[in-house]
Amino acid sequence: MSALVLYDDELDEDCYRVRLFLSLLGVEARRVVVDVVPGGEQDSAAFRAVSPAGVLPVLRMDGQAVCGAQAVLLALAHGRAEWLPEGAADFARVVHWVQFAGGPLRAALLMRRASLFAGVGDEQSARRRAAVAALRIVEDHLAHRWLDGGQWVVGEGPTVADIALFPTVALCRDWGEEHSAYPALRRWVRAVRALPGFVTMPGIPDYG
C-alpha cells in the first residue's frame, strides 16, 4: 500500500472515527488539516478537487480518494477479518451498524454540531428526539448483547461497527445527553477506551 493521506479536521467526529481506527490498526497516514470552522475550507476549490461533495474525512489510498467516514472505515477494514468478519451473517451485522452510524445516528452528530457551532436552545426539538431515539437503538442493542454475555456490537471482539458508532455515542454529552441515562453505552464506551492503541479527541470522557 502506498502512503496514506488523511484529510482531517480535528474537531469533526467523522474524522475522529478514522483517526481512531488508524490508531487501533497501528497504521500511519500523513495528515492534511482542513480548516472547517471557521475557515470553511471544505468548500474551497482545492478541497473540492479532492472531495467533490466537500465531504470529510478523505483518505487517499493507492491513488483513490475515499470520501466519507463509513467508506473510509470499510476500505481500511477490508482484508482484516478481525475487524470486518468474512462470514456472511456477521459481515451483514457489521455493515448494518456501519450504515446505521452514517444514517439515523447522524441526528446525534447534527445535534452536536448545532450545539457546539451554531447554538441551539430548544432541547425538545424534533432533532433532539431523533438523536435520542438513535442512541436508544444502540443502547437497547447493547443491553441485549450484554444479557448474552456480549460486550461488543457484533461478535466476540471489536469490529469496525464499534468504531463507526463510538465517536457519536461517546460525544453525546456535548449536546446535553448524560451517559448516566445509557448504562449499556457507558459500559461499552469504557471497553472501547481500553482497547490497545485507543486515541481520544476533545469531549470524549476520560473516566466513568
Binding site: 439515523p104 428526539r129 431523533a130 435520542v132
Partner: peptide, 9 residues
C-alpha cells in the same frame, strides 16, 4: 406526549 422516533437524516 413524548415520542422518540429515529429515522433517515
Amino acid at each position: 406526549g413524548q415520542v422518540f422516533l429515529a429515522g433517515a437524516v
